[in-house]
Amino acid sequence: MNEFLQGGLYGGGIIVAIMSSLLFVLWTERKMAARMQSRIGPTFTDPLGFLQAPADVLKLLQKEDIIPEKADRALFNNAPLLGATVAIAGAAVVPFSATIVGADLEVGVLYLLAVGALGVLPVFAAGWGSNNKFALLGAMRAIAQSVSYEVPLVLAALVPVILAGSMKLSDIVAYQSSHHWLVVWPFFLGIPAFGLFMLAMLAESNRIPFDIPEAESELVAGITTEYTGMKFGLFYMAEYLHTVIASAVASALFLGGYDGPIAPGLWWMVLKTGLLVVAIYWLRWSLLRFRSDQLMALCWRWLVPSGVVLVVGAAVWVVFAG
């Protein structure tokens, strides 16, 4: 078959699938948060408030699009698009099952990290372009945060790469299904690396307790302060996309990906990703927020050194025990 056609089909299919999964994610989060707070959550949009997310999108689509007079129009208009694109680009290399994978690159992990690092661009563009002090402060925080947390993220992702001896995500999953899932054995490397990866991912996707770039109580709405309608909606979506894809990547790297007994691979992948997403939201709705300097201290004082130790440990393990 024509390669472009195939790519388009695959890509389109995956994008549609992930987008529709957002519906579940949004609903789950809102309902879960409500339950945690002894509330009920959306009920007016039947069934069980399930159509809340479509209603939100429908509404956002109808809102006026305001561009502040003094904003940098090019940056301001393109930042949301870029944000959503970058967020979804990571999905290209994630193996959802042995056969469903957009592009099984040789350098899959590298690609993921590169795309993740790009995520800071739209944030900065939005913060700078809006010509708003709150947005600017938020953008500055976000840059400092993303750049710092890039390091532990890379270090944590290196551990499975070293153990599996490949940067290809499907190889890493294959390694785990032929040996053990990384969090099972060698657990003393796998579990810390997994934790580190999740923490750094949370920080990268700006979720509580690392959501300081858009800290509502301090910076009104951070980088999105000036955004209206669907432009804000794109940012909103990108945030959730980021969480979902980060969870998918984490489950591929550490939890054995689509490997699992009985059920087909896709189910396992969805299950693992879903569990991780729920865990992230659980954290989000029960923790307070760090201050930015504390966040940096956490990164450079604890996460980076432990990441280095883990990488060295992985190398030693491969040489002597692997």
């Binding site: 948060a33 509502e216 927020r289």
Partner: peptide
Amino acid sequence: FCLDLGGALGGGSTAFIY
């Protein structure tokens, strides 16, 4: 106070609502 520390879309609001 928790709302100030934790934001309206996070753990702060949970403490606040309790």
